[in-house]
Amino acid sequence: MRTVDISAAETTGDRRQLINVAYRLLGSVTEAEDAVQDAYARYYGLPRSRREAIRSPTAWLTTVTGRICLDLLGSARARRERYVGAWLPEPLPARAEWSQAGGADPATSGDPADQIVLDESVTTAFLVVLESMTPAERVAFVLHDVFRYPFADIAGVLGRSPAACKQLAASARRRVSASGTPASTADQADVVRRVKEAWEKKDIAALVRALDPAAVMTADGGGMVGTVLRPVEGAARIAQYMVAIADKAAGLELLERSVNGAPGLVARRAGVVVTVASLEVVDGSVTRIWVVRNPEKLRPWARAGNEFT
């Protein structure tokens, strides 16, 4: 990837916005950063006369970033077929935890993870639903429903008519609606706490009570660390698996932390974050657990993780 010298004063706002768009489209901080960097490289690679003729550099950069992400999404399925086990989005810590850990101001930080706004459009549950969409649906939905770009502009990204883009967004919206309504943050935090306490006590019965009977746990180790390669289904099997892990994981510390803006769990050993878990709570029970253990996806937690208390 070519590095571009970009004026911070000129592009801080634009870059932050583009990183936020790209992360929601790709589910990967690293890929989002690369996509945005590529867009800037293309912009500054234009002859000066062509750059000066662009009426809105922000709109131009957004369009190009969207096209780059669309291309990446198109090839993602093939790449993920070679991925060892399940692929999950990269989890992000809360910005407050960055601040408490002495992290840089998000407005000036060079770390793209610091610049991502954590809201309902980046919860793990939402990102997983986005993964079920076609690349075109995902781009149309994210740009329109999340960032409020008009379909006329989205048409320039997708190379389709505004009417076709509107249909794509509507189809994606139906997928989101079908995924159900998650619990409030307070209710989710209460259930997450019950799971943590039951896990620490190795209480299988309590874990089963906290889980929906048809709950599913999916883990992402990327072939770099040990974990289940296929989803574990059913409350009893998940509870038994969690207790078995607790028996083997001497010295593992479990913490309640915000994961992608929602209550979740973080496990660390010797001060190093080794696992980040997101939980989906519906009607007071955990319906889905997404566990990320791939060290490459835990890089945003490395700095903040050392300061967790």
Rank of each mutant, 00 (worst) to 15 (best):
S132K: 08
E280N: 10
G74W: 00
Q240T: 05
D203V: 02
A267F: 13
L211T: 00
L61D: 09
W301T: 06
A9M: 11
P112T: 06
A94D: 14
I6S: 02
R194W: 04
I68D: 01
C165T: 04
P295V: 04
I238H: 12
V146S: 05
L143Y: 04
G251R: 06
R82T: 12
R303V: 09
L279H: 06
S179C: 04
R160W: 05
W98I: 08
T134Q: 07
L143C: 04
G102F: 03
E197S: 02
P231K: 02
P295L: 09
A39N: 06
D34Q: 13
L92W: 00
E200M: 09
L252F: 07
S171A: 14
A219Y: 08
A96E: 15
D111I: 02
A210V: 03
K248I: 04
V192W: 02
A250K: 12
A302L: 10
L211H: 02
D105L: 06
G110D: 15
L88T: 11
V142S: 06
K297A: 14
Y149K: 08
I204S: 05
D212C: 10
M224S: 10
V192D: 11
Y23M: 12
R77Q: 14
L92S: 13
V216K: 11
R193G: 13
A236T: 08
L26V: 09
R268V: 01
I54N: 01
V208N: 02
G74I: 00
P162K: 03
D190C: 02
A163R: 08
A32E: 11
G156Y: 00
A239E: 09
G223D: 11
A76E: 15
N260A: 13
E90G: 07
L92T: 11
L73V: 14
C69H: 04
Q188P: 01
D119E: 11
T287E: 12
V216H: 07
T227Q: 08
A270C: 06
R80S: 04
G180S: 06
Y44C: 05
T287G: 15
L255R: 15
A183C: 07
V176G: 12
T12Y: 07
A96D: 15
G45W: 03
P300H: 04
L265I: 13
V272Y: 03
S99F: 08
A219S: 15
G180R: 01
V232R: 06
V266T: 10
E10Y: 06
A104N: 05
V157Y: 00
R293S: 10
A270K: 03
T30Y: 09
V122R: 07
